[in-house]
Design a protein around this nucleic acid. Sequence first.
DNA 1: GTTAATGTTTCGGCGTGCCGAAATTTCACT
DNA 2: AGTGAAATTTCGGCACGCCGAAACATTAAC
Lengths: 226, 226
Amino acid sequence: MTSMAERPSASVEDYVRAIYGLTERGVAVTNATLTQRLGLSPSSVSGMITKLAQLGLVTHIRYRSVELTADGRRLAYDVLRRHRLLELFLVEVLDYTWDEVHPEADALEHAVSDELIEHIAAKLGHPTHDPHGDPIPTADGVVEKPTTRLLDQVEPGTIGTIARVWDTDSELLRYLTDHGMTLGARIEVVERKPFGGPLVVRVGEAAEAETHFLGTEIAGTLSIRS
Amino acid sequence: MTSMAERPSASVEDYVRAIYGLTERGVAVTNATLTQRLGLSPSSVSGMITKLAQLGLVTHIRYRSVELTADGRRLAYDVLRRHRLLELFLVEVLDYTWDEVHPEADALEHAVSDELIEHIAAKLGHPTHDPHGDPIPTADGVVEKPTTRLLDQVEPGTIGTIARVWDTDSELLRYLTDHGMTLGARIEVVERKPFGGPLVVRVGEAAEAETHFLGTEIAGTLSIRS
DNA sequence: GTTAATGTTTCGGCGTGCCGAAATTTCACT
DNA sequence: AGTGAAATTTCGGCACGCCGAAACATTAAC
């Protein structure tokens, strides 16, 4: 009785997590955006959306929008809890780095029982954030509302610490590591160059801070708390 | 690139592991025994055996026998390595008991990448045996030949230590725990009652050893080293 | 040696989830 | 408002792995 009893299929969980992820980032959830995020064909996505609607996980307006229902959101939190606890576990216990954990957690999140997840949570001391600063939902589906701001949307002069990285790309994460932009690092927004130009920041403690020029991709990915 | 690249399906791995397990225990591998072990229908098993033969993992004589090929055995070792390392990991790192690990490892063994398995092996110090005393194959597919004997097949008077439990049933494992029959425990075969009667054993160190009467199910499950 | 019981395989069918091609709807532009 | 491009959905089809029922092979028993 491993009580992984009657979980939705791995596919269903993947879709729900993807929909949540897009919504969380303020991206419109459409067949197109989902198709792109999941790397599937439009026809597959269309079919699955219909199925999710039948399952009551999603409300779907044909040719228009997709939105999680309360049930769908609840499922998303469950999956996210598993995913993020696994990521942290891999880093804390198995010496992974933050750029390596995502694909591994992706595969494991569907195979892990609720019992195992709670063992892991206990082992880690019931942590609240994963290695990328993403909040870990509690077992009963409560998530912290983020109080952080994207670097993108902050006025020059702002100083804060890096609180979250909204990306899983391991190249990008390694780039950040290599330039001192890890979780908790001090960062100051100096100026924004016009016409989509780079964001100029100073990273590190006052004295030995280094200046970096961040493109929109990174500036739209880093969140700070100040 | 989590290089879990192109693993056989979870089903194929399950069949191969089951076939190996039966062979290891000296049970004839037939449609019937496999059907029973996997809890599937005879027609499903028949179909999959044909497929395994096409994949070159198994030689199949119609209406007769099923046997792993070298490739099949190699795959079985890979799966067994994952399974057994996971079981030990759950016990050592996540405070599972030996009667709880099997179903969990069953689900995880297909989802875990080779990298993760090597991280786990390293974390555990490259162990050679899982919590039930089963040998863990090395990464390149070498397994220790067991030098243990089933309690069943040992003459009265023999003394040894419990080296392996050929069962995954959690009730049985808890029974063993509750009666001091854990890995490494000293055990002496006192006498075999006739006509399928129980095996009389003394368990524990000389002074405070306890006498137990073991039915065939347990006697055929415990291996000792002497 | 024939026969009946037992074990194995074949057949048709189902559910899931994927795809490409074709049909449909929406949207943006004139 | 009309039209063409872009997005979405429908359709037919495929691979996988499961099942029950029916056909078939093997074996044991008379």
